[in-house]
């Protein structure tokens, strides 16, 4: 019993020392990490809607469409930026997507994700979202590889789960924007 207590005490000391060190490192790095995250979101919003004033985020009660930002130009809402949560190969995919009022996708950026480097991570690259641009309005968002052009389908080979996760989230975003317009 005494031996078990001694072993437990030593393990507790090791864990406490580790927790202390981690707390100190977190104290110095957390503000910088938060700042970088904020900057990343700001830059992405500006990239999606270079013109117009981006309003405050308005949360939605939906597991995929988390919130939306109205984009106002000359006092009128001209488009929306929607924050989406898709399901990828490595967990959740955070996506920011810009839509016209009719639900047509104008731009999208893949933000936080845990996709495989060299495969699903390629969705972060410029040009990946081009296959979705212009869809969501009259044309539906392609959610299957068979709906893509041959060269586009080849580009997503090896990362079909990532493609499906992004496509379904973008499609849900387009539907939500149409719903928002109907409610106006």
């Amino acid at each position: 019993m005494k031996e078990i207590a001694a072993i437990g005490a030593r393990l507790t000391i090791i864990c406490a020392a580790a927790a202390l060190v981690l707390g100190v490192v977190n104290h110095f790095t957390a503000p910088r990490i938060a700042f970088l995250q904020e900057e990343k979101v700001k830059n992405a919003l500006k990239q999606i809607a270079p013109e117009g004033e981006i309003g405050e985020a308005r949360p939605l009660d939906d597991p995929v469409v988390l919130s939306y930002y109205p984009v106002v130009l000359n006092g009128e809402t001209v488009s929306y930026i929607v924050e989406l949560k898709g399901q990828g190969y490595g967990g959740d995919l955070q996506i920011l997507a810009g839509y016209r009022r009719d639900g047509e996708l104008t731009a999208a950026v893949l933000m936080a994700n845990g996709e495989t480097p060299g495969l699903g991570k390629n969705a972060e690259k410029a040009g990946y979202m081009d296959k979705f641009i212009g869809t969501g309005g009259e044309r539906p968002v392609p959610v299957k590889k068979t709906q893509l052009l041959p060269q586009e389908a080849e580009g997503v080979s090896g990362s079909t789960v990532t493609f499906g996760g992004i496509a379904r989230a973008l499609s849900a975003g387009a539907e939500e924007v149409k719903l928002l317009e109907d409610l106006r």
Partner: peptide, 26 residues
């Protein structure tokens, strides 16, 4: 415990100092 602590330190420092590398290593 020791190894996990060092990895968490690397993770936090990399996220703060080299975010693009942190993003690419996923």
């Amino acid at each position: 415990v020791v190894i996990a602590s060092f990895v968490t330190i690397v993770q936090m420092v990399m996220q703060a100092a080299a975010p693009s590398l942190y993003d690419s290593l996923g």
